[in-house]
Design a protein around this nucleic acid. Sequence first.
DNA 1: GATGAGAATGAACGCTGGTTCATTCCGAGC
DNA 2: GCTCGGAATGAACCAGCGTTCATTCTCATC
Lengths: 217, 217
Amino acid sequence: MSARRVPTSIVSKPTPSKKRQILPRAVRREQLILATMRCIARLGLSSVTLSQVTKEAGLSQGIANLHFAGKEDLLVETLRFVTGEYNRGQVQILEDPAFGLASERLAALVAFQFSRSVTEETKMAVWFAFYGEAKSRPTYKTICAQADARAARLVRQLFADVAQELGRPIDPVMVAEGYIALIDGLWLSLLLAPKKMTRAKAKRVAWTHLNGVFLSL
Amino acid sequence: MSARRVPTSIVSKPTPSKKRQILPRAVRREQLILATMRCIARLGLSSVTLSQVTKEAGLSQGIANLHFAGKEDLLVETLRFVTGEYNRGQVQILEDPAFGLASERLAALVAFQFSRSVTEETKMAVWFAFYGEAKSRPTYKTICAQADARAARLVRQLFADVAQELGRPIDPVMVAEGYIALIDGLWLSLLLAPKKMTRAKAKRVAWTHLNGVFLSL
DNA sequence: GATGAGAATGAACGCTGGTTCATTCCGAGC
DNA sequence: GCTCGGAATGAACCAGCGTTCATTCTCATC
């Protein structure tokens, strides 16, 4: 009978299934995007090739061009995937009506930003790989800028709420800018020097900053 | 007699001199490194080609392989050039015996980090282009890590001095980590959203952070 | 089962880019 | 002014990559 192995989840790492399979377009696209992310993390954005990606996905050479307009399109969709996922997570926290106090919301944000899921090596690598190219690639730049702008708006609002809650006359725009920069910098440390900067330490650094901002004067 | 045009400075942007010229190895290498930086800023690290670089330098195709071991070597030397220049500038401030107070030294550091020279678009672009690839390229990673480590050591020492000077019981390691992350994040904003983040604004954000850190409690 | 629409394959193609090297020609030294 | 070592050139070469498409094979439908 030899029950053939089939992926346990719809989207999964390449199960070394030898049998050719027909799957929905959306599934194939996600498989390829995830494989692309792993390749970027392993090889770097400038060394990613379609044969590497398709091999990583356990699929055939030509499949990327079947489900995407081309290599560049696959890369762009990969970037969108990462930024979209992050933004959705952030929105979920910052618009969740369950939080009573803004400061609780802030705590949840910090926890989210240094959660395992967000700081996963692969995602950070992809994130910064695209940021590094964004300067010279209008498409990447636009996507990053939109994601950043949306994130910034939410953080500004949150900080305004926290300030009001604590009765502190801070400038939300300025403070948000600083906080966001700090988080980006911490993510960079987390990516490049994970031996020196752990998630726990990063969280403590972030809190030190927040305490300084909100409790000084 | 037709006095032939000759570069006014030893190292310069490609003077459109048609005449073939023989120059010292060190000069050629620097010309190529500077051209590489401009190309990375314009095209991105993953789209840089040797013909682009040599054209930018106003030289011939094969010259890169004559003065560098190959493309990869040229890129590595470009990274070293940027990190080296920055580190030298930082050392100059943090080891200059002219400063009486540590807090003056800190002020000089902030001014330096957001000086025109350091935040020059081209340099930031190169910097982050390599950071984006560092995760997957051991050579880049090592160079970046060494530069970061040296910078971190100096900043930690500085913060320890400032803390003592102000009589504040802060943890220099923690505070330095936060400050460095903040600066990296601000540089990233400066690079990707120069319309929104100016050098002056970044400096103000940095000072807000420092005030919070040193004046809180 | 049989069948057809179309998903998946992978070999082949053309192009791009790094590298090489025969040739050119500069310029220091005599 | 001549000469010669070697710096600089740029055309040619070849490997590797993205893309294409004829062919294969799957599976929903009947």
